[in-house]
């Protein structure tokens, strides 16, 4: 009976009742509206030959020409392949290294050592890619770089890494792992700390070695976390790490073959070539693929893992 009495609260009534609470939402909501929702109508310029004077309503419609232009160019296959390949490599190697380190740290009993190790692993995470570029230059720079110095010390010839795309997939993967492993390790370690001690005690009573406990208890129990972090990454597989690639490679065209990803390509189309419509077409494709990936991976997560869905 009470249920019938309760009137449906409309948004307007709710706002009136909680004026102050809604007022506190305004800055964040406004920001999200301007930089989130307002971007969506602009996406139609992908189907136009956008002219800044005419605006998005009066520019000339060209149908799918911008998409055609992109997919017929030889760049399309390259940058899509690079984006996906690099992201999968980043995901795989960061995960392996972080899981191994987390299990190893878990075996250590000296609190002091644990703390210092953790702090050092996290350090690179807080550096910007620009700084990482300076560090990289110090190591592989062709003239004074440490690595080249070592190579020539042992009688080899110096390598000009900035002219050799073939090394760059490895360089990018190494740097990504270097920068991210600390953060990932912390997440895995937090998960391990939550495991039930009794499992290990029981294993110890049955005579299991530490190594067996790692491979039979710790790692299998980490699988849900591994899966969840992988799902987040796979949802973003179409988004290249612009901040990383552009800071490290910049406008060095020699390396594009190994390093160019969708985001750097869109950036160049927008800022160097100055064609917002073509840039938007590529980015449109990326947004749609990205959306499908997020949705798809979340769907799988919800089906396969308990509490696995992110939303």
């Amino acid at each position: 009976m009470r249920k019938n009495k309760r009137k449906k609260v409309t948004l307007f009534m709710d706002i009136k009742k909680n004026k102050a609470a809604y007022l506190m939402l305004v800055p964040a909501a406004l920001y999200t509206f301007v930089f989130g929702y307002c971007t969506i109508p602009y996406m139609i310029i992908a189907f136009q030959k956008f002219n800044i004077k005419k605006g998005i309503l009066h520019s000339k419609w060209v149908g799918l020409k911008n998409f055609e232009f992109f997919f017929k160019s030889q760049d399309a296959a390259l940058i899509i392949r690079n984006t996906i390949k690099l992201n999968l490599l980043f995901l795989f190697f960061t995960m392996i290294v972080a899981v191994i380190l987390a299990t190893m740290i878990n075996e250590i009993h000296s609190r002091y050592f644990k703390k210092i190790a953790q702090s050092t692993y996290l350090l690179p995470y807080f550096l910007s890619w620009i700084i990482v570029n300076y560090i990289l230059y110090g190591i592989i720079g062709s003239k004074y770089g440490l690595l080249n110095y070592i190579i020539s010390f042992f009688g080899g010839t110096k390598i000009n890494f900035y002219n050799e795309p073939k090394y760059w997939t490895i360089i990018l993967v190494v740097l990504k792992v270097w920068k991210e492993l600390g953060m990932n390790m912390v997440i895995y370690l937090a998960t391990i700390t939550g495991f039930d001690e009794e499992l290990y005690d029981a294993a110890a009573v049955s005579g299991a070695t530490r190594l067996q406990m790692c491979t039979k208890i710790t790692i299998p129990m980490l699988i849900p976390t591994i899966a969840m972090l992988s799902i987040i990454s796979i949802g973003r597989v179409f988004y290249g790490d612009f901040g990383m690639i552009y800071a490290l490679v910049g406008d060095n065209g020699v390396l594009y073959h190994a390093t160019d990803v969708i985001d750097t390509y869109v950036f160049r189309t927008l800022r160097m070539i100055g064609d917002p419509s073509k840039a938007m077409a590529i980015s449109f494709f990326q947004a749609v693929m990205g959306f499908l990936c997020v949705w798809g991976s979340n769907y799988i997560a919800r089906k396969k893992i308990e509490e696995g869905g992110l939303f």
């Binding site: 609260v9 999200t32 930089f35 971007t39 109508p41 602009y42 985001d263 950036f267 980015s283």
Partner: peptide, 29 residues
């Protein structure tokens, strides 16, 4: 908890996390 529409508002924020126009509209705005 007094704000009855809090979950819908959370959704409002969440949607832009997974779908938005990307760098080109952002730049123009």
């Amino acid at each position: 908890p007094f704000v009855k529409y809090r979950n819908q508002i959370a959704m409002y924020f969440f949607i832009t996390m997974i779908f938005n126009g990307g760098m080109v509209p952002w730049y123009m705005i």
